[in-house]
Design a protein around this nucleic acid. Structure first.
Lengths: 154, 154
DNA sequence: ACGTTTTTGTTAACGCGTCAACAAAAACAT
DNA sequence: ATGTTTTTGTTGACGCGTTAACAAAAACGT
């Protein structure tokens, strides 16, 4: 992934978590939590998503995803299915209403991306380069620290 | 507050929340949660801190602070007192062990600030200016959005 | 083929903070 | 002074996600 896009991604996440109201405006988060929307997003994007895969992608525990998926099932936003050759793994797919949530979220997401890019393009090329480098360095710094952490936990 | 310091402050917070391990390394967070440490910090810095004041400063509910203060009391990190002219408000102060946590946290905080400044100073003046402006703009953007939000909630 | 190990999903107990409802004290109004 | 309103702190019910323990299925080793 391009580094500029990576930074964009970070900011979208910040925006999503701090500006929950943006979703609220669209009436998306009235009955569904932000985590549930992210889970729907993950299910919509993943091939044969099961509890384990989703938990890895979302950085939550399997137990957590197990409960979230139960909520989504009871809300009729997803449904589960299995493959004939595997009796253990349980996969999920979006229902029609789940797909609608998915689409709305994607639309909001794209709108935020666009706003962000517009915001960023107001800076000169030199400024953009400086900002990008700063975030890249920062990312590396955090990454190396995380690596340290993992190292120590072993 | 200076804008550079403001940005520093934002990053310290990010660092604190994402790099909990940094506290763990110092054995600070083994028995105390990060929120509890912040509460101790708040009590240590505030004059006559009571549940209401602390909740306002920390952005948590009174109910939350009420419970956190009970935990801190039971851990012997803070103690409560009242003033003779007021039978309603209950204030807190740090015990000796609470003060020790406060000092350790401040030390870690200062260290993080110093690291951050060092990191930042590696950039040229022009780059620093660009980065600062970027964050200032971002801050303004978020602030105006929040203002919109408050407006709509009325 | 069969015993062992790993993977997968679920559940109960827990910790954390919120919300709503409440009682007691304080502040206010007249 | 007295009745009303506001402030303050607490509690119970709740939602959310984690940890730990578990059973069932799959994968592995020989």
């Amino acid at each position: 992934m391009n580094q500029a896009l990576r930074i964009l991604d970070i900011f979208i996440k910040i925006q999503e978590y701090s500006d929950v109201f943006q979703h609220k405006q669209d009436g998306l988060l009235d009955e569904i939590s932000l985590t549930e929307v992210h889970c729907i997003d993950c299910i919509g994007m993943t091939d044969h998503p099961n509890v384990t895969k989703i938990s890895e992608q979302m950085g939550l525990t399997r137990a957590g995803i197990s409960k979230i998926s139960k909520r989504l099932l009871s809300k009729g936003l997803i449904e589960s299915y299995q493959e004939p050759d595997n009796n253990k793994e349980i996969y999920f797919r979006l229902t029609e209403s789940g797909q609608s949530v998915y689409d709305k979220h994607k639309k909001i997401h794209n709108k935020a991306s666009q706003e962000w890019l517009t915001f960023f393009e107001h800076y000169s090329d030199d400024d953009q380069a400086a900002i990008l480098r700063f975030f890249t360095d920062l990312n590396d710094l955090f990454y190396s620290k995380s690596a340290d952490k993992i190292e120590k936990e072993k």
